[in-house]
């Protein structure tokens, strides 16, 4: 793939957040807060775990990153830009008429394995992929990233039963527990209680971590894969919706709000200031 620009492969969170801001600015799009809570999770998966032969997003035998939480798709686009799977023109041309990259995950884009946005879908597709890898006796791993609001959906719990029953220990569920869903906090809308306790009760080997601490994330993923248990794996990542920009953090308005010149400039400055 001729890139014509410098490939970043460090997946620095500040850099990924800047890409998200640029896309949101050019596309006049929403869901910025949803993307910011999963930046470090995706950065670690791309940097340390996901295997793509020759950096090919469609490589046979690859690991599968299932972005069931389609609303966070800009965070994945930012990682895809670093991989060279999309180019800068996709950032500046985001949401242009007839363009490919949508506001939610579309499986026809290499790098996005499932079509999601209607919630609770990608998770089941991922369980099927994990089952398929078992049946084919490959060493492929499946990561399904879901939102905490998303686990209101019934198929999540259907799939959780199945994954445990069939001992899909090549399957890792990652819950982005940012505490918010569309209309309010998860506590206000439909209280979830302890997600980790629930997943443990469903038969998952579960870790609860700080979802913005890259060392913590990497360690948890390694530990879970190193386990010799036959249980499916789960990480409950405690995150902050809007993480990285002070006026977006814990503010559900940034599920829906578009950037203006002032907020774009201020957000870019904060993200740049956070860069080590």
């Amino acid at each position: 793939m001729g890139l014509g620009f410098k490939l970043h492969t460090q997946y620095k969170p500040a850099h990924l957040r800047k890409t998200v801001l640029d896309m949101a600015w050019h596309g006049k799009t929403v869901h910025i807060g949803c993307a910011f809570s999963i930046i470090e999770l995706l950065a670690v998966l791309h940097r340390s775990f996901l295997r793509y032969t020759d950096n090919n997003p469609l490589a046979e035998g690859r690991d599968y990153l299932v972005l069931s939480k389609g609303h966070g798709v800009m965070a994945q686009y930012a990682c895809m830009l670093e991989r060279g799977w999309i180019g800068p023109e996709h950032v500046t041309g985001y949401f242009a008429d007839g363009s490919d990259l949508k506001g939610l995950s579309d499986s026809r884009i290499p790098g996005l394995e499932v079509t999601s946005g209607s919630l609770g879908h990608g998770f089941s597709v991922g369980v099927g992929m994990a089952m398929g890898a078992k049946l084919k006796n490959t060493d492929q791993k499946v990561y399904a990233l879901v939102g905490d609001g998303e686990i209101n959906e019934g198929p999540i719990w259907e799939g959780a039963l199945f994954a445990a029953h069939h001992q899909l220990n090549n399957f890792m569920l990652i819950v982005d527990e940012n505490g918010f869903q569309a209309m309010g906090t998860t506590q206000e809308v439909l209280a979830l209680g302890s997600i980790a306790d629930k997943l443990t009760a469903f038969g998952f080997e579960t870790r609860t971590i700080d979802g913005h601490d890259e060392v913590n994330i990497e360690q948890a993923v390694r530990e879970l894969w190193a386990s010799d248990s036959t249980q499916p794996k789960a990480i409950v990542a405690k995150t902050v919706k809007g993480k990285g920009v002070s006026f977006m953090e814990h503010n559900n308005m940034w599920h829906y709000t578009r950037l203006n010149e002032d907020t774009y400039a201020q957000a870019c400055a904060e993200v740049a200031g956070a860069q080590p």
């Binding site: 394995e113 499932v114 609770g120 879908h121 990608g122 998770f123 089941s124 597709v125 991922g126 369980v127 099927g128 992929m129 994990a130 089952m131 398929g132 890898a133 049946l135 084919k136 019934g154 198929p155 259907e158 799939g159 039963l161 199945f162 029953h165």
Partner: peptide, 25 residues
Amino acid sequence: AQYINAGIAEQNMVGMAAGLARMGF
């Protein structure tokens, strides 16, 4: 070995079928 009873859980079963089809089944 080609038989899977997915339980009384049709939504998950159909989603899984998509995942299995993606894996070549």
